[in-house]
Design a protein around this nucleic acid. Sequence first.
RNA 1: GGUGGGGUACCGAAGCGGUCAAACGGGGCAGACUGUAAAUCUGCUGGCAUAGCCUUCGGAGGUUCGAAUCCUCCCCCCACCA
Length: 425
Amino acid sequence: MNGLLDIYRERDLLKDATEGADEHLAEASRTVYIGFDPTASSLHLGSLVPIMGLMHAQRSGHTPIALVGGGTGLIGDPSGRTAERQLLTKEKAAENAEGIRAQLEHYLDFEVSTNPAMMRNNLDWLGNLTFVDFLRDIGKHFSVNQMLAKESVKRRIEGDDGISYTEFSYALLQSYDFLELYRRDGCTVQMGGSDQWGNITTGTDLVRRVGGGKAYGAVFPLITNASGTKFGKSEGSNVWLDPERTSPFRFYQYWINVEDADVVRYLKFFTLLSMAEIAELEDAVEREPHRRAAQKALAEDVTRRLHGESGLSGAQRATRALFSGDIEGLQADEVAEVFADVPSSEIAAEELGGEGASLVDLLVSSGLASSKGDARRSIEGGGVYVNGVRADSVETRVTMNETIDGRFVLLRKGKKSYHLVAVRR
RNA sequence: GGUGGGGUACCGAAGCGGUCAAACGGGGCAGACUGUAAAUCUGCUGGCAUAGCCUUCGGAGGUUCGAAUCCUCCCCCCACCA
């Protein structure tokens, strides 16, 4: 029997696992959990590996639990803050949990009768926990000596930054989560990113000591880029799963732009394509890299899963129009449709009358430039296009003559940043 | 509480009375080359009314013709000691 961990291994998704986890997961259907941080109402790409981990687990017959840290999220990382830390209200935490659940539904099945996915919020038990109870029931079972030996703690103590008591205690709270899930849902396995290894093993210890049962842990590798930049960031900001925050078009583009050196690993991580299919794509990267078959397959699969067939086709239409066709030939209606996904703003028709509006101002108001100076520098560097035509002067003004059917002006900065200005009458 | 070392632009890090909007590296943005890739090369990277002006070097005062640089007080961080 092929266990869950073998599936992870095959896809390079397993960094480490506790003793006996292999057999435990191969023998029978188990309940496994991963924690997600609910500081925002949306997850981003950093959570995609754990999500895929749960997805594989459910597909192999296990019951996945997504735990949102409504309680632990409150104390998270206290360093580097000067402003008063705004505590999440219970309502806000619940609201964020709802948003996260909606996103997880694209990956996990909450309805299936045999092993439906579940959501839990640790605020349910941490919220009522008193400090004294915590010290008596949980703290008692931890040895400070052992905790100091944990890699994550040791590094902080030896480093220049030190570690606060709050953060030091974080591992205990996370361990307590595991214990609660073990008691409530019979959960025996916790998974997470490799940075969670210390917290996870601390949890398995607690379950053994207090719960009297066996518990296991497994961690996924940290995802890196071949070029050393941060995975999951596009132009410096997070790529979100929420279409309101990251449009399907941008999401699709993120994957299309994955470099050759990463694409095969990402196919293993983020799609369910078989190893044979991936091997074929790997071969294609080798033989005819310019076709970028692997990037396209990756972008297609990942976008379809999250944004559905219509989200995918919209993204592809926009991509075709932007990168292979010339937009000059498009009708206004087509422009509107194709760029539905692209950031847009409005401008009053009067502003384009007569002399028109200055391109510099438009770049600033559209957000393509952060200041007028920035806008000027971009134009001087030859990186700004109006309706696909390079702007050659910082004095350029945009008038009604430049609009597409009097309805739109398409601004572009560099190769990939677009902004559609709609004319309001 | 004591002693010592620090707080400089997105990050790291120079500068230690004028030539400082502040070296250098990283990151970011743009251009060239390409395959919407990587690597490489080039330019830019506080704001504005851009040959000029304004606001920045933890905070507030002060000395000086002139301060990131000197003085005073305060705040914060780190290490060691208690």
